[in-house]
Amino acid sequence: MRFAVIQFGGTNCDHDTRHAVRDVCGIDCDLVWFKERLGERYDAIILPGGFSYGDYLRSGGIAARTPIVHEVVSLAAKGKLVLGICNGAQILAESGLVPGVFTVNAYPKFICRPQLLRVENTDSPFTTRFSPGEVVRIPIAHHDGRYVAPGGELERITRDHRVAFRYCDPTGNLSPDSNPNGSEEHIAGLLGAGGNVLAMMPHPERASEELLGSEDGKRIFLSMADWIGKNR
């Protein structure tokens, strides 16, 4: 089993993500520069956090139109697992692998802090190691994290169980104070139409070791490995 972590100019969570996948979870993992090609050798592709292309035009807007992301779109269509974290989530939204857009926070400042999330879907390849409704702690670090769904699609996204995580308070309630960026319906992470793509603003690689205050993020990478082990 082998994961790929894609690097663009401006990506800055690539090494942390590979560390969490390879050194913490024990999964083989390569860093892949965006000018290279993925081919068929990877079981999962991760688009990590950072500021690809300096967030020029729109966050993720330019990276989403590179040949390697076109390749990611093709691999996703074949059922490969694709995880986008923070800037990676913005790229997945810009590429159309998940609907909607992550845009400037309702209060327009960069937020970097621990964050509680309620797990909404435990059937996806990314979330089988969680319990339904469980409250987990995975930090956020973004300026453009406010999720906006395409007009009229929010209801369908919810009905199809494509919301993976919502921002919540310690008891799992969706109070206004627990929504850090003004995302529609507190959406912190959502799945693509086939269920094999997850775009999430929180950073699981920053919550994969006890030393960092939470190991909840690790369960996303391990869920992916479980799923690949059963389905390859």
């Binding site: 035009l57 729109r58 807007g61 330019i62 139109r65 810009e94 609907p99 909607g100 857009v101 845009t103 906006v148 769904a149 395409p150 007009g151």
Partner: peptide
Amino acid sequence: ERILANPVI
């Protein structure tokens, strides 16, 4: 349509 604008917003 293809890059300069995002039709969602």
